[in-house]
Design a protein around this nucleic acid. Structure first.
Lengths: 217, 217
DNA sequence: AATCGATTCAATCGCCTGATTGAATCATAT
DNA sequence: ATATGATTCAATCAGGCGATTGAATCGATT
């Protein structure tokens, strides 16, 4: 094993790979583009990770998995206490990714793009991504059920989907959105979390059920 | 010009191209895959459309533009009447795409995927997509301003982004979402529109402003 | 029947893709 | 110093990519 003063080849590849997957998507990313920027040999990728798919999985595990873990740790902590509220659940979901991305500066921008983009990757990558987030979805949906058991099963699913929609869109687009009405690209993480939580909290207070009883053709 | 009993080469290419872009994304789609399934020659693509980018633009114009047009027509109609409400604006946004996709059956599934996916394409495709939807964003944001002029400019932008987030996520994921808790993949368009509108309407009733006055590091 | 523009065709260009090979190099333990 | 296993290297493979070419075919006009 090498004792590196600089980042190891493995980590170097992971860093650049995350950046490329985030910027170009899976299909738009080439191993050659990665290894060129990372100043490593092509074979290093195969040696350390295997195939391109395996590399993507490794990036997911390295960068996305900790976010999910933080969300779940936070959620479980909230559940273990009395007085669980919808807002606490929402904050458990939104705060970890937003805070992390925001605190990382330029690297956070890449992480943000990667986290957002991976949710809209075509198959078969999407299944891999979805599997990584399955436990997150399950536990948050369970929390919704705990908070209000009177809703339909579909309703809980949609709540999670809507909650997810907002952050996926935020992660992928916040940079260009902010540029549209701001000169500076700085933003306040707390304000963003508040905004997302408020929107979801009020949105979920709606019955999320058809109000019309008309049947379609 | 040829008098075709079957679909013309141009339309045949457009149809299959939409399907492939929807399924594999822009980078993941190959012209060879399209022309093989469409049973046409590679050169036909160059002849009728030009480059791969041009083909994508043509698909956008053919399939996505009418949706935006329908949304804007609907919105302008609502604005011209008295008693404009938030719900009417939301329905003007959600109904056209949902109804259209739902009424088209299997072809609607492809359109749905394409409409959703194109919003998360990497650059430079995203810019092309964004330009197509610019007028839509501007007019709906203007409608939000008309409904309530007391909010900040950023707030209107976020309202639109949140509204957009929900349908992008729905269009790309509704099939797999429904399969998760339903045996049948049938769905009721009116119920979906109601659901989206309700969520947004209540979400937007929130101030969409930071409730905390703490400043970050 | 001859002509002409529109369209389609097979064939090919140069380049890039992910993956693999076997040899060279490194770090370490003996 | 030498043997060993871990790592990196240049070189190469077969195949796919977008794009272009010039010839062949089509349909309509004269």
């Amino acid at each position: 094993m090498r004792n590196d003063t600089q980042t190891s080849t493995k980590d170097q590849i992971l860093d650049i790979a995350e950046s490329h997957f985030a910027t170009f998507g899976f299909a738009g990313t080439s191993l050659r583009g990665i290894i060129k920027e990372a100043n490593v040999n092509v074979a290093s990728v195969a040696y350390h990770f295997g195939s391109k798919d395996d590399l993507f999985a490794a990036v997911m595990k390295r960068f996305a998995a900790p976010v999910v873990e933080a969300q779940l740790t936070r959620l479980r902590s909230e559940i273990s206490k009395p007085d669980l509220t919808l807002e606490k659940v929402l904050r458990a979901f939104y705060e970890p990714p937003i805070q992390l991305v925001h605190s990382m500066g330029a690297k956070g921008e890449k992480l943000s793009l990667f986290l957002g983009r991976c949710h809209s990757e075509p198959e078969p990558i999407f299944s891999l991504v979805d599997a990584h987030f399955a436990s997150c979805r399950d536990e948050f949906i369970e929390a919704f059920r705990t908070l209000d058991s009177s809703q339909s099963e579909a309703s809980y699913q949609w709540r999670f989907e809507f909650m997810l929609s907002l952050i996926v869109n935020f992660l992928t687009r916040h940079k260009s959105i902010m540029q549209r009405y701001q000169t500076e690209t700085d933003w306040n993480a707390l304000e963003v979390v508040d905004m997302l939580c408020q929107f979801c909290m009020h949105g979920m207070s709606a019955p999320l059920q058809a109000k019309s009883s008309k049947t379609e053709k």
